[in-house]
Amino acid sequence: MRLVFMGTPDFAVPALQALHTAGHDIVAVYSQPPRPAGRGKALRASPVQHAAEQLGIEVRCPVSLRKNTQEWEAFAALQADAAVVAAYGLILPQVMLDTPRLGCLNIHASLLPRWRGASPIQSSILAGDTQSGVTIMQMEAGLDTGPMLLRESVPITAHTTATTLHDALSALGGTLAVQALAGPHAAVPQPEAGVTYAPRLTKEDGRINWHDSAEAIDRRIRALTPWPGTFTQLADGTVLKIGNAQPNPTQQHNAPPGTVLDGTLTIACGTGTLRLLQLQKPGRGMMEADAFLRGFALDKGTLLHSLPVE
């Protein structure tokens, strides 16, 4: 089949590779333009652009598609049977959605209609969902509202992190994209019940509120590591990033939430406690707790703050 592929981050790379391996003729790849990255702020191509160039596929990187009639014409000239979209990052105008013979298919990292929007992987862990998955959807103008062609779930356990779930769904997305194009598959409208939205994340979403339960804080750490990362503050304003922790939801205490309870970095939560396993202090990398404590004291009774320290 003659395809256009549209994607930008690591999540989309397995789908591009799977479609290429399946023998589809990928006539062009669309990806976000190279961005400044690293200490030198040199322009860096996206993971999808890098993968496409390795496969010898033409890459197009428009800054915007809105009112971009020149790009609309170039897209139409590709005469694609279908476009496959995975975390591309630009909104496709209706004229582009209507151009391919079979329309545009989206690889979405959730079990639609739950978690439409920008952060479905993180939102599913934060909410305590027991499963996530991938939906292959026929795209339309609404935000992830199109009819579903394929849908497959994966479990979320007490140890699932954003990284492990990302990798599982990324691989599954490639498999389902190939299956969707091998069709035909009935397009099933999304149910009106059960719609939830996954907002775009900010760094402030990573701030730990020690008044939450130990389980909720653990979910936040697993959901938001490595980005935007979770953090807390000391009384002097020092920011400590938290990379991994172990909740004990039934451990009783009488201390204010955020209090260091012992020398193993067990922290009082709204209910239960949380033992910090990996931490990062300013200017250093993430460390195991014992290595961290050799160079940074967090004495029993120290209070970790839930709100910004003035």
Score class of each variant (00 low, 15 high):
residue 82 A to D: 09
residue 67 K to E: 15
residue 102 L to S: 15
residue 71 E to N: 11
residue 80 A to W: 05
residue 78 L to N: 01
residue 66 R to C: 03
residue 86 A to E: 06
residue 79 Q to M: 06
residue 84 V to L: 02
residue 64 S to P: 08
residue 91 I to A: 05
residue 109 A to E: 11
residue 106 N to K: 07
residue 71 E to L: 08
residue 109 A to M: 09
residue 107 I to C: 02
residue 67 K to N: 13
residue 108 H to W: 01
residue 104 C to L: 00
residue 56 G to F: 03
residue 108 H to D: 06
residue 73 E to V: 09
residue 61 C to Q: 14
residue 86 A to K: 04
residue 91 I to S: 06
residue 58 E to H: 00
residue 59 V to G: 05
residue 84 V to A: 01
residue 75 F to K: 00
residue 92 L to D: 01
residue 91 I to C: 05
residue 104 C to T: 04
residue 87 A to P: 00
residue 105 L to K: 01
residue 101 R to G: 03
residue 78 L to H: 01
residue 83 A to I: 05
residue 106 N to Q: 12
residue 60 R to L: 12
residue 83 A to C: 12
residue 102 L to D: 15
residue 88 Y to C: 03
residue 70 Q to W: 14
residue 82 A to K: 04
residue 58 E to P: 02
residue 63 V to Y: 11
residue 68 N to V: 10
residue 91 I to L: 11
residue 73 E to C: 03
residue 92 L to P: 00
residue 53 E to K: 14
residue 109 A to N: 07
residue 57 I to D: 07
residue 109 A to R: 06
residue 69 T to L: 10
residue 107 I to M: 04
residue 103 G to T: 12
residue 61 C to M: 12
residue 89 G to K: 00
residue 71 E to I: 09
residue 63 V to S: 13
residue 93 P to W: 08
residue 85 V to S: 06
residue 88 Y to A: 00
residue 64 S to C: 09
residue 65 L to T: 12
residue 58 E to N: 03
residue 102 L to K: 15
residue 105 L to F: 02
residue 69 T to K: 09
residue 80 A to N: 10
residue 77 A to E: 13
residue 70 Q to P: 04
residue 108 H to V: 03
residue 86 A to H: 05
residue 83 A to R: 01
residue 53 E to T: 15
residue 53 E to F: 10
residue 76 A to M: 04
residue 65 L to V: 14
residue 96 M to R: 06
residue 95 V to L: 11
residue 90 L to Q: 14
residue 102 L to F: 15
residue 81 D to Y: 08
residue 93 P to H: 10
residue 79 Q to Y: 04
residue 85 V to Q: 05
residue 105 L to A: 00
residue 56 G to E: 05
residue 99 T to F: 00
residue 86 A to M: 07
residue 98 D to S: 12
residue 91 I to W: 06
residue 76 A to I: 08
residue 74 A to I: 08
residue 55 L to W: 10
residue 58 E to Y: 03
residue 84 V to W: 01
residue 79 Q to W: 02
residue 59 V to E: 14
residue 62 P to D: 11
residue 103 G to A: 07
residue 93 P to L: 12
residue 57 I to Y: 06
residue 75 F to L: 08
residue 85 V to W: 06
residue 96 M to E: 11
residue 80 A to L: 09
residue 70 Q to L: 14
residue 64 S to R: 15
residue 55 L to C: 07
residue 75 F to C: 02
residue 98 D to L: 10
residue 103 G to F: 05
residue 104 C to M: 03
residue 68 N to I: 12
residue 95 V to G: 03
residue 79 Q to L: 07
residue 65 L to P: 08
residue 104 C to F: 00
residue 98 D to V: 06
